[in-house]
Nucleic acid binder design. Structure first.
Length: 196
DNA sequence: AGCACGATGCTCT
DNA sequence: GAGCATCGTGCTT
């Protein structure tokens, strides 16, 4: 119900990436609401960041990142995968947060069937699970009637947040390759620790 | 459990 | 024409 306002996104990208953890990602697909809690995100910040698509400047593909905050930047890669990002910072400054993983909390049956019972921990996995593709590029996430939007969710304590280098930037030079702009919620323990 | 690899097409040089 | 902000499979330990 509490949709995140545009001011949430109009802030430093690292702050937005951290605070997106635990938020409710809502996708309305064929009239059914699917919801996942965001559990992993990465920041891509400006033309100086050589891991960010905006390093190439303003192109047809990166135009959305240069636009106003609170919109979806959805792009296609590896010949088969869609990636979901949310645009951050003021209009004119290209930056975004890649959503890398969700934990399904609503519409699980549909999500599971779209994933053939497999997990949603991975940027291409969650877009497949929620039916997100290039048609949603540029969509306003702050519009309560959008088929894709983000609402407030459970707060995540700092002690449960793990940071580290962004994933998959094999040929990106330092310091961008290793800079710790990845944020994820510590995995829920599968087993209680064995006491001897 | 961990690594290597192929799939597959769009974007920018 | 090269390079991808990846995933699933299949093979090795």
């Amino acid at each position: 119900m509490k949709i995140l306002p545009r001011s949430f996104y109009d802030r430093p990208t690292l702050v937005v990436a951290r605070e997106l953890l635990g938020k409710r990602l809502i996708r309305v697909l064929e009239g059914v609401q699917l919801v996942g809690l965001i559990t992993e995100a990465e920041a891509y910040i400006g033309e100086e960041d050589l891991g960010c698509h905006a390093k190439a400047g303003r192109t047809k593909r990166t135009a959305v990142m240069f636009g106003p905050p609170g919109h979806a930047y959805v792009y296609f890669t590896y010949g088969m995968h869609w990636m979901l990002n949310v645009v951050t910072e003021s209009e004119g400054f290209p930056a975004a947060v890649l959503i890398r993983a969700i934990e399904p909390v609503e519409g699980r049956e549909i999500i599971d069937s779209r994933r053939s019972g497999k997990d949603t921990l991975g940027p291409a996995k969650l877009t497949q699970a929620l039916g997100i593709d290039g048609k949603l590029n540029g969509l306003d996430l702050c519009d309560p009637h959008s088929g894709l939007r983000i609402e407030a969710g459970p707060s995540i304590d700092d002690k449960d947040v793990i940071t580290g280098p962004r994933v998959g930037l094999y040929t990106v030079p330092e310091p961008w390759k290793s800079i710790p702009w990845r944020f994820r919620v510590a995995p829920f323990p599968k087993k209680t620790t064995k006491i001897v």
